[in-house]
Design a protein around this nucleic acid. Structure first.
Lengths: 209, 209, 209, 209
DNA sequence: TATGAATGAGTTTTCATTCAT
DNA sequence: TATGAATGAAAACTCATTCAT
């Protein structure tokens, strides 16, 4: 363990908080490396440089720590996204920006993807937040006559799946902006834009970002 | 355990084959119920009505039986698909038909999805087959000027992800043809068709099917 | 482990039953030696000459094996008692005989006491049987005008407590028939007999036994 | 934790003493609730509203605190008993009074029983005191020709066992003076009094008390 | 081949005890 | 002295795998 998002959050805080964060960061690291199922409690404590039993001073079981890790990461991702979205009015550009940024965050913080993907069903409320968020952008696009679709949960599922493909594709290789750009095009076309309009929106977004 | 695909395949055959099939069917059933990781060897033998140790007369470990189950199922899915695709020339209609049929097979045989989804990376060669297959249809569509995209593996990843969304959406509910139809539209738009052309292609495909 | 009651019971039976019995006998032995709380699962399997995990092929936890051991022993004690009580009509002699025999069984099979005493509350139904049994003898004594008490559950509690004192007293020393005889007197006096009548009844019982 | 016997004892004293008492009271409470074996050190400190490690500033282990708690309680019980016994000459009335009072103390201070019963073998010297005490009353009864028994340790074991039955019977229900009275009769009969004389002694004792 | 009991390494989990603050 | 987080030995429990029948 070197540092980690959770330890950053609790840097000045009490010892308990810092140990807890060390465990959370270690969990993220271990899950990224070995997968959710293969991650043992002892892997986590070892990665955190702590004794085995210490785990149980802070969490009841693997599920609990993973849920919390996933939630913390999700929260941070949203926080970073939010910052970039402010002031963007055009729905297409919003979608492109969000997608691009999302993928870029997850390819920068590689370990996060495994926890987020592996813990998707651990985060029903986060999922709801994310979906509300996306839904508002999609509806804005429909209102702006940019998108030609009916906005349903099922549609959002599809958008999310496309973005996940982009994340996964860059998970084990160097980040490749072209893939991200491609998937932005895919999302826009999925939402009913023609290939050419989609391409133009991406162009506009990249100028603006 | 009642019957199962693998037992159908080996109905008249020798005892060894039939036992083996019972294990494969049981594995599919158990994985569908509890997931790949939670499925224990003993769950499989129990579901098959066999003794614990019998497993090792046929397979070396869980991975092996799952790979084989996934492969057998994948093979059967392709077989059924192939039958329906013959004689269809229009790429858009081919894609719609394949998608529709694929989803319909997996929603009919519910247990198959879990094995296929959970065993995706266990089937590198099947994946290749599937991708070659899809690729030819997509390229045909580009040649026919129906699709306006560059056909890459990454694009196929996206198409597959959309189809998977449709399967997953119907996994725990009654099958809903509207969802399947919707996802067909999504795929066609993803491939660069306009919403209206996509809708028309779906219409045409459903008349033809 | 040498032999043991439970292994005697399952001598000719299948392997599963015999292993199970070995565990039960080992549990009795270990509990007698270290007490209920200090007895570890691994002590039991070691005493039985089995691997650790084997325990869980037969019982879910310590409580379960102890409950079963206590029940089996209780059953056997009752069986042996029953044999000796047949044909005795005089209630006082019945009580003396039962007490004497009970104490003698438990001092002969030393290990049984710990399990029976330690598992008393694990055996609600056995307790009920035992109480019904005692109650009938006490009521018989009242009907015969030998005993001058009101027969209540609370009274039986007291009789049982006196007998337990006799068992405990001989648990860690050589059996001493005088103690048993003494406690028989105590029980009869408790039940309202005069010291001299009580003494005579004991005399009579010992002639008869 | 509200108050407790040990805190009463050290009310005005220094902090160290008061903390120590809080632990003792907590130990009594916890043992009453969960039993000796199940009581964890951390249960005790938690019940005392203290930190985990504080325990070791005062006691070395669970055994030590329980021994001390049992001793303190035993001491207090004897103190209260003594007060009531003064000036009673008749041995039968002494026994009835002691029994009645003892049971009434333990049913009033419910938590004490568990510690006393569970810690019986932790208190060899207290046991000796108690036995000397009882022995002198029994011998007095024999000298007064009230009791018709040989006074042995084994006999005292039996008397104590009967009293314990009365305590236990009222442990989880509301106190019931009839049970106590009943057990007084049992003790007197055990000691060789006839039922009618025993009844009269109890009558006399209750008039006197 | 099928059986299913036994195995024991691998993990989880508990909790008395230590120790820096 | 009090704190309470960390420790790690010890115990419980799981389950893939072996093997005698």
């Amino acid at each position: 363990m070197r540092h980690g998002h959770f330890q950053d959050l609790t840097a000045g805080r009490g010892k308990r908080e810092r140990t807890r964060s060390a465990l959370l960061d270690a969990a993220v690291e271990v899950v990224a490396e070995k997968g959710v199922e293969a991650a043992k409690i002892s892997d986590i404590t070892t990665a955190a440089g702590l004794a085995n039993g210490t785990f149980y001073n802070h969490f009841n079981d693997k599920d609990e720590i993973l849920r919390e890790a996933a939630y913390g990461i999700a929260f941070e991702v949203v926080r970073r996204l939010d910052a970039e979205m402010e002031g963007i009015d055009d729905a297409a550009i919003r979608v492109v920006t969000a997608t691009t940024r999302f993928v870029s965050i997850l390819t920068a913080e590689r370990d996060w993807s495994a926890v987020l993907l592996g813990g998707a069903d651990r985060l029903p409320d986060f999922r709801e937040d994310l979906y509300r968020y996306l839904r508002s952008d999609l509806e804005r696009g429909v209102a702006q006559k940019k998108f030609d679709v009916e906005v349903t949960t099922f549609l959002i599922d599809q958008v999310v799946a496309l973005i996940a493909v982009a994340v996964r594709a860059q998970l084990h290789t160097a980040p490749d902006p072209r893939l991200t750009r491609e998937v932005c095009g895919s999302v826009l076309r999925l939402l009913g834009m023609t290939p050419s309009k989609a391409a133009r929106a991406i162009e506009a977004a990249s100028r603006q970002g």
